[in-house]
Structure formats: structure tokens, C-alpha cells
Design a protein around this nucleic acid. Sequence first.
DNA 1: CTAGGTTTTGTGAAATGCCACAAAAAAAGC
DNA 2: GCTTTTTTTGTGGCATTTCACAAAACCTAG
Lengths: 415, 415
Amino acid sequence: MKNNRKQDGWDDRYDSLEELADGVSERLGCPVTIEDAGNRLLAYSTHSGSTDSARIATIISRRVPEQVIGSLSQEGIMSRLAQSDEPVRIPAIPSIGLGRRTAIAIRKNSTLLGYIWVLEESRTLDESGLASLKQAAGAAAGKLERHYTKKRKELERRQDFFWQLLTGESRPDERVRAEAEKLGVTLPGTYRIAIVQGATRLEEVLGKQLNEALPSLWKARAPLSASGGREWIWLLEETEQIRTAAAADATAACLRSLADRYGLQGGMSAALSTASSDYSQLGSGYREAQTVLQLKAGFPEQVGPLFAYDDLGHYRWLPYLAEQNRQARYTNPCLERLRAYDAEHHSSLLETLAVFLAKDCNGKEAAEALHLHANSLNYRLKRIAEIGRIRLDSMDQKVTLYLDLQAEAFLKRSK
Amino acid sequence: MKNNRKQDGWDDRYDSLEELADGVSERLGCPVTIEDAGNRLLAYSTHSGSTDSARIATIISRRVPEQVIGSLSQEGIMSRLAQSDEPVRIPAIPSIGLGRRTAIAIRKNSTLLGYIWVLEESRTLDESGLASLKQAAGAAAGKLERHYTKKRKELERRQDFFWQLLTGESRPDERVRAEAEKLGVTLPGTYRIAIVQGATRLEEVLGKQLNEALPSLWKARAPLSASGGREWIWLLEETEQIRTAAAADATAACLRSLADRYGLQGGMSAALSTASSDYSQLGSGYREAQTVLQLKAGFPEQVGPLFAYDDLGHYRWLPYLAEQNRQARYTNPCLERLRAYDAEHHSSLLETLAVFLAKDCNGKEAAEALHLHANSLNYRLKRIAEIGRIRLDSMDQKVTLYLDLQAEAFLKRSK
DNA sequence: CTAGGTTTTGTGAAATGCCACAAAAAAAGC
DNA sequence: GCTTTTTTTGTGGCATTTCACAAAACCTAG
């Protein structure tokens, strides 16, 4: 058995996937690429020979172009490839610059690890070539498996590192940078923390999708990421695109579509911390992003459409205000009086006041929102002023009431 | 000498001022009262004999009625008494229920310590009686001096205790109560911290005046007080009166008149913490009262007329908001844009916005306050919306701007 | 100085908010 | 049940705000 393998010579002769690719290419007389299960380029043969534009694009971007994968999926080639242990012949598709080729899945214990592609531009594989290809796939499996475990370990080390930064004690900026360097992570000059949260546990697959989609949406590198049950977290490079309204809309749309696709009840919510270039502040960035999520949940109408902590406006204070009020057992006496009246007379002065304030003290809009005649609203406002002993023409009083109302609401909604 | 004294028999024969009063009364055959320099009753003879209404009132309230002191001061009797070492004969003043009497100052090394009053209702002192009275005053001096030093030491111990409660680490409620008990201080069930602050160092005399005036104004006991340079601090019993608007006006008037009388530039400012019955929170009460003072100084128009922390409304958050914004180097981008425009064009959009908001978005009032034509204000508001990218019909935006503006102002004013 | 922009002020028309009043409806009290 | 109070809705007028437009004043830079 051992002899047989040695004779075939694929298994141990080459140290790396690159050498394997070159070896296969030489044996078959065709250009060869080896990719992982996500169609990311792992190795390609360097020997001369004509090459089609699909292969060039793949090598340049270190990934098979989305368009090519799309086409091959549509034709059913990708699934055939994934299901079969045999080489699969693929006809040329000139419209996407794809020349004729033969490919085979690399697998181990029935899990798909990657693919070997052989471009048959100048010559076609015969039976013995196909057999060689199959043996090459077997040889690649071992190497690919080692590649994956190494990758996974690296990823896990990075994830641990990231989690510690997020939730552990704050460490000085320089130390964070040094440790990142050691793990081969290049930190961006300025960064944000991004979180995506679902109502229920997010599946691994969905997380991978997010991992691809969001950074590309924001045109930002995400050198660190982590996931914890209901949420995925990234360290994002700060870019121009993140701050644009268009990006916000695109993000919302993307989350909606992904949530739909994965049948997530309650959808997903995303949040960004403020931008910072001080890595000792990473933990507080995480808390900022979490605050955004909390506020989006508590005030879907007002905060729901926002993503970044920068954009929260006065809402950013609510967690603190609510907590302080709770500790001091503070209640606004005006609101208490209205609440008491409401309880006794089954009225809704408190709600009326809240809506009136939220509608910027615009009588017309508030009346509409409450399904009320404008005069009724006016009557209520007079009662509110009387019973609550409130001057509705004082900005100070209105701001106090608005904040106290919202702090109450926040407390109630976050239970 | 010793013999002589012994023979006169005033000095050592009596242990207490009460016994001395009784002894003098017996020797002279008249009712006797002994008072301190502030006309507070220290001792009075219990032997029978007719007594006028002024003496009765003095004994009941343990203090000479204000009215009587006023009358005697006006007649020049108090000052004669204070300047002379000899007994002073005082004619009856029936209109205030004062019978005929003779009095003498008690003094040691030319500092006035108190008075002995002899009521001559039924008989008149002869020369030997006057001489006895003078000797009695000499004997009282020693006792009174000890009384004063004891009082002062007690006061100092209480002041130290109070200062520690105010500025030291918080100690548990029960411990505070126990320690107070040991010092003979009876703590009220619910209390507030009160501070009066002047622009410059407050004189001792003024402090004493405050110590009398304010608790009586608020009809509240003040079992503990302390002074530190520019401020006087009290632990006040919580009473109904403190919370009334009338009390607030009276307090303001009282402070004004005292500041005037003592020629204090910049007047005085007073503040009250919220009411609490938890003595472990005493320190935070002190900080609350200080916050009130800070805010009164920073926002004289809006917070100036207030005293209690309860009444601060949203202003109570400003110190925290300002500090957070400072630490995060946060600046509101809308305000920044306006500021930049103002700087470049020598305009005053920022001030316009601030006034407009402060005037509750009332165009007319804001225009008046800015000495502007209503249309000009409108034009400016449009520019503000444009340049600052502000929606002036959104309560959320307005609240955010208002808070950010005020936090800025607070920071600037507290340098 | 002048041309261009910005800002202020003036005018009038349309829209809107505010208020008093009254009738109807609903709720509370007896 | 009835009466009384509270609340809602309707009407119309008055005052204000808002807006478009235009003229005047002011600034600024070439």
C-alpha cells in the first residue's frame, strides 16, 4: 500500500499546496488551481501555458469571481462537483471568460475541503489524466485538512484575543497593538466596533454570510471578529462609506434580506460604536455598540433607523439617566400627578403629553397620531397643564419631562 | 484675699450657675436671671417673688424676647451695660411688660460673657446690694468662661463630625446615628443639606446671623452646622415649610438683606439637597447642594431662582453630560458647522439657535430677545437648518442640541 | 469703486394655531 | 333612574405664524 502511494508520488513528495499544484500541472500538461470550499484561491501552478480570463481574475483577487461561481451554480456544476468523488468535465462558458476545464472535489470523510481545477485550453485530459487527478485530490485532502486546522486555530486565537479586548479589562493601546502584531493581525488606524444581533441564536452559516457581506458593504476590512450566541462582533476599519446614509440603508436592506432568507423571526439589528484610534478604548466601543442595540430595541421608531453611536443624539444619555433615577427612586412629580389622574379617571393624559412632545409640540400632528380632534387635544393639554402643574411654554420643563418620560420608558422596556 | 472672697462667699460656694442665681436672689431678696452674651437664658432663681411678663417670656423660650432686647437697645441701655463694669439701673417699660430692674455685665479680661438681671419688683437694691451684685458678677465670670469653653469644644467636636460626614467616606446609616447619639446630637428623621455660599470669605458674624435666621425661616432645626471659608453648611430637619415657594422667596430676600448689610459683593447663594432619611447618603446630599450652587452660578436666569436639587429638572444632568462630552472629546457636528460659519462670516447663528430654543421655539419672543425683526429671525432659522443640517421640527434634534449647548455652556462657565 | 453675495427689513396672502362658545357624548355620583 | 361633571366634537373668528417676494442695507473681494 505504502509502495503504491510512493509510486503515485503525490502524497509526500510535495511540502506545500503550491508545489502540489505545480506537480499536477506538470504531469497533466495543463494550468492548475487549488481552491478551498469557499472558492478562495489556495495555490496555482506557475508553469507556462495559455490561461483564460476567469483564471486570471481568480489569481488576481485570490478568489473565484462571484459571477463565475454564480454561473457554475446555475448550471448545476457546483452541486455536481460537490456531490461526486469523480472529476467533472466543465464546458467553456465564453460569456464569463471561462475556458473548458475539468475539476474535482477535495474531500475527507465526506466533508468538502476544496477543489482542484484543471484548465484544458491547449490539451484535453485522457483517462490516465483523470485518474491522476483523482489521486491528486486524495493527496491534497491531507494538506488541505492541515491547512484548515491551522486556520481554525489561528482564528480561535484571534477570537480569544478579540473577546478579551471586548470584555476584559482595558489594556494600554501599545500593548494591544503589540499583541495584535504577534497574532499577525494588522489593526487599522481608526476603528469601530460593529455588532449584529438576532432575536435568537444566530446560525454559523448566517454568521459566515454576515462576515462576507457586511465588510464588503461598508468597504472596510474587518481584521477581527467574534460571535457569541445571539451576536456577531467585528473590529472594523473606519472608512468613508460607513458614515454615509446610503450605507445605512444598504445595511438595513442586507440584514432584512438575510433575516428573511434564514427565516429569522424578529429580524436582525446592527450597531456601530464611535470611531476611535485608541485601542485601550475598545471595550467602551463594545459597550457603545451594545447601548445602540438596547436603544434601538427600546425606541424602534426614533432610534431604530440608526446604526452608529454618534447618531444617537440625546438618546445616548438614557441608560445613565434611567439608572440614576432608579437608584435615587426619583419620579417626576408632574408626571406622577398625571399618572394618578389617569389611574383614577381612566384617562390618558400621560400618553397625550408623551405624543405631543414627541411630535415636537405640533398640535395637528399629535392630534392625528392620537386619533383625536384638534380641539380635544387642546382641551387635554389645558388639563395637563392644570393637573400636572406644567408650563407647556417652557423649554426647560418640556425637556425635563421628555427626558424623564423616555428614561422611564427605557427602564420599563429593558425590564 | 482668699479670706475676703470666702467671706463674700460667691466664688466657690456654688457648683452651678443655677445655684449661684438662687444664692444671689436669696441675698438680695429679688428674682434673678443669668444670661449669656447672646441673651440666651443660662440660669434663673427659683425662689418665690413676683415676676414680670418679660421674665416669664424669657424663661419659657430660654431667650430674652427680641422685642425686649430691641427696646433696651434703642434706649441705649444694652450698650451702657456692655461698656460699664458697674450695675446699671433700668426703669420699667410697661409697654413691653418689663418691670424695674438692675443689671450688670459679666466680663473677663474685658470680653463680655453675659449678664445678671435683678428684678426689683417688690424691693429696691441698696448700696450693699449693688456691691454684692458686682461681686456676684465676678464670681459668675469664672463659671461662664468654663461654660463657654465647654460649649465651644462640644461645638468643635460636632463640627468635625459633620465635616467627616460631608466629605469623608460614606459610613452606614446606623453608625452615623450611633455616633450622633454619642455627641448628644438628635438627628431628624428626614434631612436635607443646606449650603450658603458667598463670593468671598464669609465673616464669623455673618455666619452666626445665618445660623439664627435660616433655620427659623425654614422652621426647621439644624442640629449640625459647619463653615468652610466661603460657605456655611447645615444639616436641616425636613419640614413642610422648606418646600414652599414662599420660603424660597423669603430665603432669597433674607440672603439679599444680609449680603447688603455686610457689604458682600456678588451677594450670597443658597442651596438645598433632596430630602433623605438615609444618613449614609449625607455626602451625596452635600454634593447635590454643591451642584445646585454650581448650576445657579452657570445659569443664573434659569436655575438662579431655585434652591432645591429636586427642582433642577434636566439641569441636574449637566455636570455629568459636560464631563462625559469633555472626556470623549464629543462636539455636536451641527453646532460645529454653525460655529464654523459664524467664525467665517461674523454671524451669530449659534446664539440665535440657543435663544430660539431657550425661548421655547417661540419666534416672536426669540426675535425680541435678539432685537431682531421676526422675518430676520425666520431667515436665520432657515440658514441654521441649512448650514447646520438641522431639522427644527424634530423634538429629538432640538433636545439634543439644547442639551449639547447647555453642556458646553456649563463647561465653559465652570472653566 | 463696484459687482456679487449675504443679510435685514417690509409687505401681503395663505395657512395655521388658538380661543370662546355651545352642543353632544360619556362617565361619575347620588 | 336622574343630575352633575368631564370629555369630545363642532363652529367661527381672531391673532399669529409662515411663506414668497422684493427692496434695501450691508459685506467682501477683486
